[in-house]
Design a protein around this nucleic acid. Structure first.
Lengths: 175, 175
DNA sequence: TATTGTTATACTCTATAACTATA
DNA sequence: TATAGTTATAGAGTATAACAATA
């Protein structure tokens, strides 16, 4: 299964922070072994750190949400419907940057699990409104509670002020 | 191609920050349309923000590195070899959390592009040391310079102190 | 017996094209 | 003509199993 693969890095990257390391030239002795790998340069890159931290949190999240059989994306879908009853597939896709064809299966499976129901849209005959069933609501509430505990675990080395500042800084990047 | 897909969310998630929103119960009128999607809950989750920020940076990075034909992972491989000449495939895999079979092709392609060379390991006949060619060194230097510019762009709304604090906080999550 | 590098391969995720029904 | 939802499908990423060569 690929979900465990979220711990893999494969995507990461960028560039130097304010006082970062110099990209300078390195002498390359071709006959010496590397005993300790120097990751200092990558660790000076914001993108590398963001990716690594995100993967760490996701890994923890995946493990903790296994009991509900919810992948991160499933949790998000459930949660967005929870807080936006009647939302359409299209709105959900726009909100979570999911391609419409890729949402179809997720919604279908959640419907089979009796977590969500699709009702006619009040004034658009093409669309369907997504709602939680009582079971879905119960699971959303329990999953959100669990998510809170998992977040506490991931951020255990941050105090409340740091945690909220971290979120603020992250939002300055992408919002 | 999938690289563009990095803007897709699919993975995100977690839980509530210190003073986050209440997961509480919501009334669900089944006959009303959603006009404005409320993303407040997800935005209170550290993991969601980390994932979104990482994707934003990656998207910017992918676009900016296109001129070098380097994906983020290629950049990281090149950069780690740059700063650790003679590193083995195995060490590289451990450093970047790449599965060994998935590194083979990357190394092979970079070798074909004359960016890296593989030399016998000084005291382990099974292993090969990875080194940059002169062309590889030149590209690593230029790419790292470009990465710095791209990072400045991604973090343009952060001052130097905020940028370095963001990195510190991220490292408290995963290190 | 364990490890390095490798091949082959399966599975998951993501994107695009094209269709239908309705607006 | 444009949009919501859908089907089919291609492509990229990631994982595991198994092997030869060397430690």
């Amino acid at each position: 299964m690929r979900r465990a693969g979220l711990q893999t890095i494969t995507d990461f990257l960028p560039t130097q922070s304010g006082e970062g390391l110099s990209p300078g030239t390195y002498s390359t002795p071709k006959d010496r072994a590397v005993d300790q790998v120097d990751t200092g340069y990558l660790q000076s890159l914001l993108g590398y750190n963001a990716r690594r931290a995100a993967l760490s949190i996701i890994e923890n999240f995946v493990a903790g949400m296994a009991e509900f059989e919810l992948r991160p994306v499933d949790f998000s879908v459930l949660s967005v419907i929870h807080h936006n009853p009647g939302i359409t597939s299209r709105q959900l896709c726009a909100t979570l940057s999911i391609q419409p064809p890729n949402l179809v299966g997720m919604v279908h499976r959640m419907q089979q699990r009796k977590l969500i129901s699709r009702l006619p849209h009040p004034h658009d005959g093409r669309a369907m409104g997504l709602h939680l069933t009582p079971e879905g609501l119960s699971m959303a509430q329990r999953a959100e509670q669990k998510a809170f505990k998992l977040e506490e675990k991931s951020a255990e080395r941050l105090n409340p002020a740091e945690r909220s500042q971290l979120i603020q800084l992250l939002q300055k990047i992408y919002l």
